[in-house]
Amino acid sequence: SDLGPIEYPPGEHRLQHPYCLWFSKRPSQIQGSQGYSQALRLVGQVGTVEQWWALYSHMVRLQDIPAHRDLHLFKKGIKPMWEDSANKKGGKWVIRLRKEQAGKAWENLCMAMLGEQFMAGNEICGVVVSTRYQEYLLSIWNRTASDQATTARIRDALKRLLNIPPSATMEYKTHNDCLK
């Protein structure tokens, strides 16, 4: 699950952090975290804006991905799992959107993270889109769930950057709650 060092071609626009894109199919409850880990597939990695758009343009459109799949864009070195040391004290904002609203919001969410628009220091770990039947869930994971000032700042930035409809629900969940 490592694609080796990131390449930075001359002339391309370097990102603050390199990121990895992962894909997974939701395992059944019975498989637990081991099943989840095995279900994760590393799709690609990006270190520059140009590499991001090249990867993005090769991705299947969100509306065409079957239900119960997750796409995860995480900083290189952080696995998109609760158990990763960067995540175990963390949490996530979850936004529920109708399917037709999700594509643009996901694109905005990725751009906001890659462009360091959250002003949250090194708190951001990654973002996830989860496909369901009628709705899609967007999540942004941060390192420290107990840091209320930062989680509030991330929430406010999400509202500003994603153009999400006022009707969309947002809730914060700690990973610890999810593990219980």
């Binding site: 140009e50 758009w53 360091e116």
Partner: peptide, 21 residues
């Protein structure tokens, strides 16, 4: 050090540049 910050419009412009095709 300085953070590398990109706004949405800047990223969108690079999306359509020939080098990212």
């Amino acid at each position: 050090g300085t953070r590398i910050v990109y706004e949405k419009n800047f990223l969108m412009n690079l999306r359509n540049s020939p080098s990212s095709k």
